[in-house]
Amino acid sequence: MIRLRKEEKIAYICILPSFILISAVIFFPVVKTFINAFYSLDLYGNIQHFSGFDNFKRLFREDVFLRITINTLYWTVGMVFITVAVSLVLALALNHEFIGRKFSRIILILPWAASVMISALLWKWLFNSDYGMLNRLLRELHIISENINWLATPKTSFPAMIFVGVVISIPFTTITFLAGLQSIPNELYEAARVDGANKLKVIYKITLPLLKNVFFIVTTLNVIYIFNSFPIIWVITRGNPASQTDIVITYLYKKAFLYQDFGIASALSILIFFLLLTFSILYAKLIYKRGE
């Protein structure tokens, strides 16, 4: 009992700096956003008067609300799924000894090393139908015979942007998986090999369960980042046409800084918050179903 108290003291001292930092910088604005959502705000986000659920009502009445919700789901689920799947396989491969491994790891971080805005600008240019390199490449590889106007309609532009997002998200995800793979003691593999387990079985029975923690972190963080990722869409289509390629976060930026409707923007932030929160809790429950 006494020992616990002492330990707790240490714990509190340890988390104090972090707690102060987070509270000082982020917590106050977040609380402010919560309050704002229930007030009528002027064009510059300053509180006018209490308005109850008015902002939320206006938000749900937006004609594109359903569209951007679907887009956001499509965007997040699609991108996270592809990113995590590709990165896991890639990390397993990169964990092998092979010629060029070090070189491969350096190339791997390239999309991460460049700022997302620059990557988005670059990809937008590569996607251009006439002077973009992608069409030329695909033509030279005889995959297409005529230039495709990738960004002309949401049908192609949205998947194209998801593709860009995947390329940008792969490095972080793969590196984290790799680091996780390296924390698995070699003895475990050797023991399994002695037992005569085949490769797939080893991956399935040993590697994946031990990666659970990393897997959870990577997926949760990716969902949050991708949900909130703004530059790719902003640079490439800016939500055109008619918000058909907008996701919640780009729409929020538009509402806040182009429409200067901070009431709707705040309401939308609250909604995002609860969505992400629900997801995180459900996901944590799912992953840690059988206790910790």
Partner: peptide, 11 residues
């Protein structure tokens, strides 16, 4: 020119 609703003026 196709893509008139997404390809902006500069492009």
């Amino acid at each position: 020119y196709p893509g008139w609703s997404t390809v902006n003026r500069d492009d």
